[in-house]
Protein backbone atom coordinates (compact mmCIF):
# COMPACT_ATOMS: atom_id res chain seq x y z
CA UNK A 1 0.00 0.00 0.00
CA UNK A 2 2.39 2.60 -1.19
CA UNK A 3 -0.02 5.38 -2.04
CA UNK A 4 -2.90 4.62 0.23
CA UNK A 5 -6.35 3.24 -0.31
CA UNK A 6 -7.49 5.90 -2.74
CA UNK A 7 -4.97 4.84 -5.26
CA UNK A 8 -6.05 1.23 -5.04
CA UNK A 9 -9.74 2.05 -5.43
CA UNK A 10 -9.69 4.69 -8.14
CA UNK A 11 -6.41 3.90 -9.80
CA UNK A 12 -5.48 7.57 -9.52
CA UNK A 13 -2.70 9.17 -7.49
CA UNK A 14 -3.63 11.11 -4.38
CA UNK A 15 -2.67 14.49 -5.77
CA UNK A 16 -5.37 14.04 -8.42
CA UNK A 17 -8.00 14.31 -5.71
CA UNK A 18 -6.26 17.31 -4.28
CA UNK A 19 -6.69 19.14 -7.55
CA UNK A 20 -10.34 18.10 -7.76
CA UNK A 21 -10.81 19.82 -4.42
CA UNK A 22 -8.97 22.87 -5.71
CA UNK A 23 -11.27 22.99 -8.73
CA UNK A 24 -14.43 22.80 -6.63
CA UNK A 25 -13.05 25.42 -4.30
CA UNK A 26 -12.31 27.68 -7.26
CA UNK A 27 -15.86 27.39 -8.52
CA UNK A 28 -17.25 28.23 -5.08
CA UNK A 29 -14.94 31.22 -4.75
CA UNK A 30 -16.02 32.49 -8.14
CA UNK A 31 -19.71 32.17 -7.27
CA UNK A 32 -19.09 33.76 -3.87
CA UNK A 33 -17.32 36.73 -5.40
CA UNK A 34 -20.10 37.14 -7.92
CA UNK A 35 -22.69 37.12 -5.15
CA UNK A 36 -20.63 39.55 -3.09
CA UNK A 37 -20.42 41.94 -6.05
CA UNK A 38 -24.19 41.86 -6.56
CA UNK A 39 -24.65 42.64 -2.88
CA UNK A 40 -22.28 45.57 -3.27
CA UNK A 41 -24.61 47.12 -5.83
CA UNK A 42 -27.56 46.17 -3.69
CA UNK A 43 -29.12 43.83 -6.18
CA UNK A 44 -32.11 42.10 -4.60
CA UNK A 45 -32.27 38.47 -5.63
CA UNK A 46 -35.80 37.21 -5.98
CA UNK A 47 -35.51 33.68 -7.26
CA UNK A 48 -38.91 32.94 -5.74
CA UNK A 49 -40.50 35.20 -8.35
CA UNK A 50 -39.07 33.35 -11.34
CA UNK A 51 -41.36 30.29 -11.41
CA UNK A 52 -44.20 32.42 -12.80
CA UNK A 53 -42.18 32.76 -15.99
CA UNK A 54 -42.44 29.02 -16.41
CA UNK A 55 -46.05 28.51 -15.41
CA UNK A 56 -48.66 30.42 -13.45
CA UNK A 57 -52.28 30.20 -12.47
CA UNK A 58 -54.49 32.68 -14.17
CA UNK A 59 -57.78 33.71 -12.62
CA UNK A 60 -60.53 33.59 -15.20
CA UNK A 61 -63.77 35.48 -14.65
CA UNK A 62 -66.94 34.08 -16.15
CA UNK A 63 -69.12 37.11 -16.81
CA UNK A 64 -72.73 37.47 -17.78
CA UNK A 65 -73.58 38.77 -21.23
CA UNK A 66 -77.19 39.61 -20.50
CA UNK A 67 -79.40 41.41 -17.97
CA UNK A 68 -81.51 39.23 -15.72
CA UNK A 69 -81.95 36.89 -12.82
CA UNK A 70 -80.02 33.77 -11.97
CA UNK A 71 -82.74 31.23 -12.53
CA UNK A 72 -80.87 28.01 -11.85
CA UNK A 73 -77.50 26.70 -10.66
CA UNK A 74 -76.97 23.03 -11.23
CA UNK A 75 -73.86 21.11 -10.25
CA UNK A 76 -72.77 18.13 -12.30
CA UNK A 77 -69.62 16.47 -11.04
CA UNK A 78 -67.03 19.24 -10.76
CA UNK A 79 -68.84 21.55 -13.16
CA UNK A 80 -71.44 24.13 -12.34
CA UNK A 81 -74.07 25.34 -14.76
CA UNK A 82 -75.44 28.80 -14.19
CA UNK A 83 -78.55 29.86 -16.07
CA UNK A 84 -79.48 33.52 -16.36
CA UNK A 85 -82.98 34.53 -17.59
CA UNK A 86 -84.34 37.97 -18.27
CA UNK A 87 -86.16 40.00 -20.94
CA UNK A 88 -87.19 36.82 -22.70
CA UNK A 89 -83.56 35.76 -23.08
CA UNK A 90 -81.88 32.81 -21.47
CA UNK A 91 -78.17 32.07 -21.32
CA UNK A 92 -76.34 29.16 -19.69
CA UNK A 93 -72.71 29.32 -18.54
CA UNK A 94 -70.71 26.22 -17.67
CA UNK A 95 -67.73 26.65 -15.34
CA UNK A 96 -65.70 24.61 -12.88
CA UNK A 97 -67.59 24.78 -9.60
CA UNK A 98 -64.58 26.07 -7.56
CA UNK A 99 -65.83 29.59 -6.95
CA UNK A 100 -69.39 30.44 -7.94
CA UNK A 101 -69.97 34.05 -6.97
CA UNK A 102 -73.77 34.32 -7.42
CA UNK A 103 -76.74 32.62 -5.84
CA UNK A 104 -80.13 31.70 -7.20
CA UNK A 105 -82.51 34.64 -7.58
CA UNK A 106 -79.78 37.29 -7.74
CA UNK A 107 -80.19 40.04 -10.30
CA UNK A 108 -77.25 40.82 -12.50
CA UNK A 109 -76.22 43.11 -15.33
CA UNK A 110 -73.97 42.35 -18.32
CA UNK A 111 -70.32 42.18 -17.27
CA UNK A 112 -71.03 40.97 -13.75
CA UNK A 113 -68.85 38.12 -12.59
CA UNK A 114 -70.80 34.90 -12.19
CA UNK A 115 -67.89 32.71 -11.18
CA UNK A 116 -64.12 32.55 -11.26
CA UNK A 117 -61.72 29.69 -11.65
CA UNK A 118 -58.00 29.23 -11.87
CA UNK A 119 -56.25 27.83 -14.87
CA UNK A 120 -52.57 26.90 -15.36
CA UNK A 121 -50.92 28.84 -18.13
CA UNK A 122 -47.48 28.53 -19.67
CA UNK A 123 -45.15 31.33 -18.61
CA UNK A 124 -43.11 33.48 -20.99
CA UNK A 125 -39.99 31.35 -20.78
CA UNK A 126 -41.89 28.15 -21.51
CA UNK A 127 -43.61 29.76 -24.48
CA UNK A 128 -40.22 30.99 -25.71
CA UNK A 129 -38.66 27.57 -25.17
CA UNK A 130 -41.43 25.96 -27.17
CA UNK A 131 -40.94 28.39 -30.07
CA UNK A 132 -37.18 27.90 -29.98
CA UNK A 133 -37.64 24.14 -30.04
CA UNK A 134 -40.15 24.32 -32.86
CA UNK A 135 -37.90 26.58 -34.94
CA UNK A 136 -34.83 24.45 -34.24
CA UNK A 137 -36.51 21.19 -35.17
CA UNK A 138 -38.04 22.59 -38.36
CA UNK A 139 -34.81 24.33 -39.39
CA UNK A 140 -32.79 21.19 -38.66
CA UNK A 141 -35.00 18.98 -40.82
CA UNK A 142 -35.06 21.46 -43.69
CA UNK A 143 -31.34 22.19 -43.22
CA UNK A 144 -30.45 18.50 -43.50
CA UNK A 145 -32.48 18.15 -46.69
CA UNK A 146 -30.94 21.28 -48.23
CA UNK A 147 -27.50 20.19 -47.05
CA UNK A 148 -27.68 16.69 -48.52
CA UNK A 149 -29.07 17.95 -51.82
CA UNK A 150 -26.52 20.73 -52.20
CA UNK A 151 -23.74 18.44 -50.98
CA UNK A 152 -24.65 16.00 -53.74
CA UNK A 153 -24.88 18.86 -56.25
CA UNK A 154 -21.46 20.02 -55.13
CA UNK A 155 -19.85 16.72 -56.19
CA UNK A 156 -21.92 16.34 -59.34
CA UNK A 157 -20.25 16.46 -62.72
CA UNK A 158 -22.89 18.79 -64.11
CA UNK A 159 -21.47 22.33 -63.91
CA UNK A 160 -24.88 23.96 -63.52
CA UNK A 161 -25.56 21.90 -60.41
CA UNK A 162 -22.03 22.14 -59.08
CA UNK A 163 -21.72 25.88 -59.51
CA UNK A 164 -25.14 26.53 -58.00
CA UNK A 165 -24.03 24.64 -54.92
CA UNK A 166 -20.73 26.52 -54.77
CA UNK A 167 -22.43 29.91 -55.10
CA UNK A 168 -24.98 29.00 -52.44
CA UNK A 169 -22.37 27.81 -49.96
CA UNK A 170 -20.06 30.76 -50.52
CA UNK A 171 -22.86 33.33 -50.30
CA UNK A 172 -24.16 31.92 -47.04
CA UNK A 173 -20.78 31.38 -45.43
CA UNK A 174 -19.55 34.80 -46.45
CA UNK A 175 -22.08 36.90 -44.57
CA UNK A 176 -23.24 37.14 -40.95
CA UNK A 177 -26.35 35.23 -39.96
CA UNK A 178 -27.84 38.43 -38.53
CA UNK A 179 -27.68 40.05 -41.96
CA UNK A 180 -29.23 36.99 -43.58
CA UNK A 181 -32.10 37.04 -41.10
CA UNK A 182 -32.74 40.71 -41.90
CA UNK A 183 -32.68 39.99 -45.62
CA UNK A 184 -34.99 37.00 -45.27
CA UNK A 185 -37.53 38.96 -43.29
CA UNK A 186 -37.34 42.53 -44.54
CA UNK A 187 -36.41 41.91 -48.18
CA UNK A 188 -37.61 38.47 -49.22
CA UNK A 189 -40.39 38.47 -46.62
CA UNK A 190 -41.77 41.82 -47.72
CA UNK A 191 -41.53 40.76 -51.35
CA UNK A 192 -43.22 37.42 -50.87
CA UNK A 193 -45.92 38.66 -48.51
CA UNK A 194 -46.76 41.62 -50.74
CA UNK A 195 -47.01 39.33 -53.74
CA UNK A 196 -49.22 36.96 -51.78
CA UNK A 197 -51.49 39.80 -50.70
CA UNK A 198 -51.66 41.17 -54.23
CA UNK A 199 -52.93 37.76 -55.30
CA UNK A 200 -55.39 37.56 -52.46
CA UNK A 201 -53.60 34.93 -50.44
CA UNK A 202 -52.65 35.12 -46.78
CA UNK A 203 -49.27 36.22 -45.44
CA UNK A 204 -46.54 33.90 -44.27
CA UNK A 205 -45.81 34.50 -40.57
CA UNK A 206 -42.39 35.75 -39.45
CA UNK A 207 -41.64 32.40 -37.84
CA UNK A 208 -41.29 30.78 -41.23
CA UNK A 209 -38.83 33.39 -42.44
CA UNK A 210 -36.86 32.70 -39.30
CA UNK A 211 -36.93 28.97 -39.99
CA UNK A 212 -35.92 29.59 -43.61
CA UNK A 213 -32.96 31.78 -42.66
CA UNK A 214 -31.65 29.28 -40.12
CA UNK A 215 -32.25 26.29 -42.43
CA UNK A 216 -30.42 27.95 -45.33
CA UNK A 217 -27.60 29.00 -43.05
CA UNK A 218 -27.16 25.54 -41.54
CA UNK A 219 -27.73 23.93 -44.95
CA UNK A 220 -24.60 25.55 -46.36
CA UNK A 221 -22.45 24.16 -43.58
CA UNK A 222 -24.19 20.79 -43.74
CA UNK A 223 -23.51 20.79 -47.47
CA UNK A 224 -19.77 20.98 -46.85
CA UNK A 225 -19.96 18.35 -44.13
CA UNK A 226 -21.92 16.02 -46.43
CA UNK A 227 -19.54 16.61 -49.32
CA UNK A 228 -16.50 15.85 -47.19
CA UNK A 229 -18.27 12.81 -45.72
CA UNK A 230 -19.12 11.38 -49.13
CA UNK A 231 -15.66 12.06 -50.49
CA UNK A 232 -14.14 10.32 -47.49
CA UNK A 233 -15.79 7.06 -48.56
CA UNK A 234 -13.38 5.11 -50.71
CA UNK A 235 -14.08 5.24 -54.45
CA UNK A 236 -14.00 1.44 -54.52
CA UNK A 237 -17.34 1.42 -52.71
CA UNK A 238 -19.07 3.29 -55.51
CA UNK A 239 -17.32 1.16 -58.08
CA UNK A 240 -18.37 -2.07 -56.37
CA UNK A 241 -21.97 -0.87 -56.15
CA UNK A 242 -22.10 0.37 -59.72
CA UNK A 243 -20.38 -2.75 -61.07
CA UNK A 244 -23.27 -4.76 -59.59
CA UNK A 245 -25.67 -2.74 -61.72
CA UNK A 246 -26.89 -0.28 -59.10
CA UNK A 247 -27.84 3.15 -60.36
CA UNK A 248 -26.19 6.30 -59.01
CA UNK A 249 -29.16 6.84 -56.72
CA UNK A 250 -29.20 3.27 -55.45
CA UNK A 251 -25.50 3.26 -54.70
CA UNK A 252 -25.82 6.59 -52.88
CA UNK A 253 -28.79 5.42 -50.88
CA UNK A 254 -27.64 1.93 -49.93
CA UNK A 255 -23.86 2.18 -49.92
CA UNK A 256 -22.41 5.68 -49.76
CA UNK A 257 -24.79 7.76 -47.63
CA UNK A 258 -25.18 5.20 -44.81
CA UNK A 259 -21.40 5.00 -44.47
CA UNK A 260 -20.94 8.74 -44.84
CA UNK A 261 -23.65 9.43 -42.27
CA UNK A 262 -21.71 7.65 -39.53
CA UNK A 263 -18.71 9.81 -40.19
CA UNK A 264 -20.58 13.07 -40.44
CA UNK A 265 -22.79 12.62 -37.42
CA UNK A 266 -20.42 14.37 -34.95
CA UNK A 267 -19.80 17.49 -37.08
CA UNK A 268 -23.48 17.52 -38.00
CA UNK A 269 -24.44 17.50 -34.33
CA UNK A 270 -22.11 20.42 -33.71
CA UNK A 271 -23.83 22.29 -36.53
CA UNK A 272 -27.27 21.76 -35.05
CA UNK A 273 -26.15 22.76 -31.59
CA UNK A 274 -25.01 26.02 -33.19
CA UNK A 275 -28.37 26.29 -34.87
CA UNK A 276 -30.21 26.12 -31.55
CA UNK A 277 -27.98 28.85 -30.19
CA UNK A 278 -28.23 30.95 -33.33
CA UNK A 279 -32.01 30.91 -33.12
CA UNK A 280 -31.57 33.45 -30.32
CA UNK A 281 -30.98 36.07 -33.05
CA UNK A 282 -34.51 35.71 -34.38
CA UNK A 283 -35.83 38.13 -31.78
CA UNK A 284 -34.88 40.95 -34.16
CA UNK A 285 -37.63 39.93 -36.54
CA UNK A 286 -40.18 39.83 -33.72
CA UNK A 287 -40.23 36.10 -33.26
CA UNK A 288 -40.85 35.40 -29.60
CA UNK A 289 -38.25 32.71 -29.14
CA UNK A 290 -36.55 32.01 -25.85
CA UNK A 291 -34.24 35.03 -25.80
CA UNK A 292 -36.93 37.48 -26.88
CA UNK A 293 -39.29 36.00 -24.30
CA UNK A 294 -36.64 36.36 -21.62
CA UNK A 295 -36.15 40.01 -22.50
CA UNK A 296 -39.87 40.56 -22.19
CA UNK A 297 -39.82 38.81 -18.85
CA UNK A 298 -37.00 41.09 -17.75
CA UNK A 299 -38.87 44.24 -18.69
CA UNK A 300 -41.92 43.01 -16.82
CA UNK A 301 -40.12 41.82 -13.71
CA UNK A 302 -37.02 43.99 -13.51
CA UNK A 303 -35.14 40.87 -12.43
CA UNK A 304 -32.49 40.70 -15.17
CA UNK A 305 -29.90 38.71 -13.22
CA UNK A 306 -32.17 35.81 -12.39
CA UNK A 307 -33.84 35.64 -15.77
CA UNK A 308 -30.73 35.97 -17.91
CA UNK A 309 -28.95 33.34 -15.84
CA UNK A 310 -31.96 31.07 -16.26
CA UNK A 311 -31.92 31.82 -19.97
CA UNK A 312 -28.33 30.66 -20.25
CA UNK A 313 -29.11 27.51 -18.28
CA UNK A 314 -32.09 26.73 -20.51
CA UNK A 315 -29.94 26.88 -23.64
CA UNK A 316 -27.40 24.71 -21.88
CA UNK A 317 -30.08 22.12 -21.14
CA UNK A 318 -31.17 22.17 -24.81
CA UNK A 319 -27.71 21.81 -26.28
CA UNK A 320 -26.59 19.30 -23.67
CA UNK A 321 -29.56 17.00 -24.28
CA UNK A 322 -28.97 17.29 -28.01
CA UNK A 323 -25.35 16.23 -27.70
CA UNK A 324 -26.29 13.37 -25.37
CA UNK A 325 -28.82 12.17 -27.91
CA UNK A 326 -26.24 12.27 -30.67
CA UNK A 327 -23.79 10.32 -28.54
CA UNK A 328 -26.49 7.73 -28.02
CA UNK A 329 -27.08 7.55 -31.79
CA UNK A 330 -23.37 7.16 -32.43
CA UNK A 331 -23.14 4.31 -29.96
CA UNK A 332 -26.15 2.61 -31.48
CA UNK A 333 -24.69 2.94 -34.98
CA UNK A 334 -21.35 1.61 -33.84
CA UNK A 335 -22.96 -1.57 -32.52
CA UNK A 336 -25.33 -2.18 -35.42
Amino acid sequence: MREGNDHRVTGRPLHYNRWVVVFCFGVLVFLGLFYYATQKIQYVWRWNRTPIYFAYQEEIHVTSTIDGEVSAITVEGDKARITVTGNGEEETYTTPKQDVRVSKGEFISPGDTLATYKKWKAGLLVIGLWITLKISVLATIIGVIIGILSGLMRISENPALRWSAVVYVELIRGSPLMVQILIWYFVLGTLINDLLIANGWGQIPALWYGVASLACFAGAYVSEIVRAGIQSIHRGQTEAARSLGMTYGQSMRHIILPQALRRILPPLAGQFISLVKDSSLLGIIAIRELTKAAREAVSASLQPFEIYILLGLLYLVLTFSLSMYVQYLERRMATS
Binding site: G236, S243, L244, G245, I255
Partner: peptide, 15 residues
Protein backbone atom coordinates in the same frame (compact mmCIF):
# COMPACT_ATOMS: atom_id res chain seq x y z
CA UNK B 1 -25.20 -4.61 -68.77
CA UNK B 2 -23.27 -4.29 -65.51
CA UNK B 3 -25.67 -6.65 -63.79
CA UNK B 4 -24.58 -9.27 -66.33
CA UNK B 5 -20.89 -8.57 -65.82
CA UNK B 6 -19.49 -9.45 -62.42
CA UNK B 7 -16.36 -7.71 -61.20
CA UNK B 8 -13.93 -8.65 -58.46
CA UNK B 9 -11.47 -6.04 -57.24
CA UNK B 10 -7.98 -6.24 -55.88
CA UNK B 11 -9.09 -4.54 -52.66
CA UNK B 12 -12.31 -6.59 -52.30
CA UNK B 13 -14.49 -3.49 -51.79
CA UNK B 14 -17.02 -5.28 -49.64
CA UNK B 15 -19.64 -3.02 -48.08
Amino acid sequence: VRAEVGMVFQSFNLF
